[in-house]
Design a protein around this nucleic acid. Sequence first.
DNA 1: GCCCAGGTGGGTA
DNA 2: TACCCACATGGG
Length: 220
Amino acid sequence: MNLPALLTEVYDRLYAAYGPQGWWPGDGPFETIVGAVLTQNTAWTNVDKAMTNLRAAGCMTPQAIRDIPEEELALLIRPSGYFNTKAKKLKAVVEHLARYDDDLDRWRDREAKELRAELLSVYGIGPETADDIVLYVADLPTFVMDSYTQRIVDRLGLTPAHRTYDAYQALFEANLPAEAPLFNEYHALLDFHAKDVCTKRTPHCEDCCLLPLCPTGKSS
DNA sequence: GCCCAGGTGGGTA
DNA sequence: TACCCACATGGG
């Protein structure tokens, strides 16, 4: 099976097994950006506590985060871990948003790769966070990779020659139509599969929907 | 108590 | 380019 067909088969199997995931369209573009930063190497349950604190303090707007002292911001987001670092990151991000008068709708007309490159220049925004924002905020097609999705790629025997973020990402982007809704759903399905179905405790579940596609005979 | 969570930036060779 | 390491809380 060629790569486009294989990746389409993977998607179809995941979708059939789990249905639509509905990741991150709900709470508005700015909350999505905040969540993308706070969730860096952090469980979402902890991010949720920090987000609740920010809302309760009236700090869930770019201007409010610009106005609050960094030390107070750090205190609010403490439950999400790395709070000093993340406070600095959020400050850097909202500083960047001021260029657009905090109007994130302006990103929707951009080229995905160009916006991605711009975001990467902001302190605290690395490849995954940039892709989160491009895909889930600007609604532009870029494929989000993370540790879970890389693990599934590996189990499918598709590990790229250079095991870099960009190489894993290119695997999907070069072999699928560049459609934001597809990339959105695909990433969410991969993540759900790796995190909530094939956990480390049961790495090779016998009824895994991807098992027939894994060359090693082990599921993801 | 131990491991890990939807990473990133800075330093070193 | 390719590794290290610090950053830090909370749940299983």
